[in-house]
Write a protein that binds this DNA or RNA. Structure first.
Lengths: 119, 119
DNA sequence: TCATTATGCATAAGAAAGTTATGTATATTT
DNA sequence: AAATATACATAACTTTCTTATGCATAATGA
């Protein structure tokens, strides 16, 4: 049986924060578990954000004033929703632009550019 | 005066090994300093590989049998040339393919696949 | 009904892979 | 002569993950 391989973990390093900020920007507000599931789904299981990586990141973003939180109770269980502040929105845009630029540079460095005019 | 900004260092993590293996594959053989300079040039100074990152990586690659070395003297100064073994060539191809795939996934995740011509 | 899986948060210990700093030495440029 | 460039190497430290653990509620299935 074929197991869809995840990317080696080094690759996620450095992009996780960008992914999370961008999701929050697009979705308005999300809670931690939801973020892990959405990334898993959107990446066809090739990116699985671990809780040990995500929650500390979210806490750090809150501490730095890039996100605010809002708790909601589903029955007896709490959900902690995160949404971007203005600062976080700026940061999200910057991060996405930088990563996009970086990927262009990488494509050039690795000679991955198709023969046509784009890149 | 405008300083061309380097990418935040997290981004390089996870891609350095791929970059080095791919350069060696394309160039046949290279020495450490040459690698740093080529990446700097090809990236318009936006990626600067530090020696503290590069040399330990090259030593690890040699230990794992992915590269072999060959010393050459330029006057009294030594240059240590690295070239890929067969194993290293396989590894280079795998790494580049994985990174390429990962970037596609990222573009999708981050909604960077604009319908128009730019990104 | 009881076990398993899913949902949902959190944190601590450890590993990986960089940065920064330092060291040594030769060659070139100003 | 001093500064910069070339060329290697390694140690201490930091960042940022993974892995492991813990707690608790909800849903599913045998």
């Amino acid at each position: 049986m074929y197991i869809c391989p995840m990317y080696s973990s080094e690759l996620l390093k450095g992009t996780l924060k960008t992914i999370v900020l961008n999701l929050l920007k697009e979705q308005g507000k999300m809670y931690g578990y939801e973020i892990t599931q959405r990334v898993k789904m959107l990446s066809s299981d090739k990116i699985q954000i671990t809780e040990g990586a995500l929650y500390p990141l979210l806490h750090a973003l809150e501490k730095q004033g890039e996100v605010t939180t809002q708790e909601e109770f589903i029955g007896k269980r709490v959900r902690k929703y995160y949404s971007l502040t203005e600062k976080g929105t700026v940061s999200a845009n910057e991060k996405v632009n930088e990563l996009s630029d970086f990927m262009l540079t990488l494509r050039f460095l690795l000679n991955l550019d198709s023969t046509s005019a784009n890149g």
